[in-house]
Design a protein around this nucleic acid. Structure first.
Lengths: 266, 266
DNA sequence: CGGCTGGTTGATACCGCTCAAATAATGTGG
DNA sequence: CCACATTATTTGAGCGGTATCAACCAGCCG
């Protein structure tokens, strides 16, 4: 189980184990009560992010076992860490709302953003390797996550084949994602990287029901730069150039995609 | 230590399903007969790479089921592909002898080496994500691999917890490895990358019973460059510089590590 | 309001890429 | 086994894309 003593920061790293009944209510609150009428049977099935979450693979007949597993949730305030490199690994986390960045650090002091995670995506896979996390997961905005104790996940995988399959896919997708990113970092120019980044973010926003052509960046230019292996000034210049060309509209963190084709042809 | 008395022919993509008894004999041949006296019980357990292989997690009581799973092996000649991007995913491969590179390609034609795999390491994890491989796996020298049909692996995982655990670790290790590589690509200078590469290879050779201070590169400067995100000339210059400084001894593909500390302090 | 973080833009330096040429290593056919 | 073709490696010279340094601006919050 998740010890409630998990590194608590300023205020918000509170883990709340709740009885299923209470949990339902809390979850409904998270969703602004929109699904209150439906929420009786199975909290996980009613989650707005169910479609993207690892738990989506569990057949409805076994939802009950799922809800027993996913029985804690957690708020993480903007700038706070869900876990840090070196923390012992307990659980995988499904992002219910908000977004995160993952950061790895080199002994020499430099650090690098290895990914941005949106709602529905999973955090913590890195911890499986050595029972210890190897990166920091930091919230880019006030966020909520569901905790899935990993030994419970492994237990469930024994009985629910689709879940096993899904977990394997999830990890493999992460492997593929990273190798794609390496190709980006190693081979392409700064502008191409920024363009690719915008397009990727665009489709992911669209998948979540937001507009793919107008969205808000939750991360700073510096974080984008770190992710893409360049300086923040270079990111800024690339965005300015794209705007001059009429391909995008930039206003601070607000991004509008005007000419997607131009970006993808870089 | 790694006996590759395996001669490669041109037509090597041969998969040979064998009865267990025959298999034993073939394997013993693969090992140069060194373990012939011991090989009666369980071929997998007698593999020289068992310690590093995913199958090392299977308790001896269940070796027999393992041997039923790992019942095909395959030679891959230098320069040939074990699988290619786009191939449908069937199996994971454990490298029994030799070494490989994995290469991903960008639509625009550029390609990038995402990793080098040595004996005992596993290939094919990328295919799990979409039942289709996303990279090419190319032998850097004449090599042999054991095929492990993935549906069999998943079946066995249901019954053998340690194997499930090991598979998860394996995938997570790959995730961690890649995020470390991204840090390398994004943040460090060309010389630092080359130094890190040499040190990494050195420890992996040592783990396999070779000297960590004197070994042969199986890949070209160009492949190293692709892996590290730089041009082959830059790799060559870095190696030359390290030699001028007296930190390493280079003679073509033969590398001697003279002053490990200097390399790690870059 | 004034400090502060985040973002934009400009000037300059430098690392690593590109092009080029010479040399070494490897493979092939006779 | 040699002669030749091919591939791999080293080294040099010059250019260009990014980093770096610096100045300035815009929100934001106490």
């Amino acid at each position: 189980m998740i010890p409630s003593s998990l590194k608590s920061q300023t205020s918000v790293d509170v883990v709340r184990p709740l009885a299923p009944r209470q949990l339902k209510l809390v979850r409904d609150a998270t969703q602004g009560g929109q699904t209150a009428g439906l929420a009786s049977a199975s909290p996980c099935a009613n989650c707005v992010m169910h479609w993207a979450c690892i738990t989506g693979a569990v057949p409805s007949a076994q939802q009950e076992r799922l809800d027993r597993m996913v029985h804690t949730w957690r708020k993480v305030g903007k700038g706070e860490s869900l876990f840090r490199a070196g923390d012992t690994f307990h659980a995988l986390y499904a992002i219910r709302s908000g977004s995160f960045k993952t950061v790895v650090s080199h002994p020499n002091g430099t650090s690098h953003v290895t990914g941005f995670q949106l709602s529905g995506e999973t955090l913590g896979l890195d911890g499986i390797a050595a029972d210890r996390h190897t990166c920091d997961a930091v919230a880019l905005e006030d966020s909520t996550v569901c905790s899935m104790p990993f030994h419970c996940v492994e237990d469930l995988c024994q009985d629910i084949r689709p879940l096993q399959r899904r977990l394997h896919q999830l990890m493999a997708e992460e492997i593929v994602r990273e190798s794609g990113l390496m190709l980006l970092l190693a081979g392409l120019t700064a502008e191409t990287r920024v363009a690719t980044f915008l397009l990727n973010l665009s489709t992911r926003m669209q998948d979540r029901g937001y507009s793919g052509s107008s969205f808000t960046l939750r991360m700073t230019r510096e974080e984008i730069g770190s992710y893409l292996g360049m300086q923040l000034e270079t990111v800024s210049r690339a965005l300015s150039r794209f705007q001059r060309e009429g391909w995008i509209a930039v206003s601070g963190k607000q991004i509008g995609i005007v000419k997607k084709s131009a970006l993808s042809e870089l």
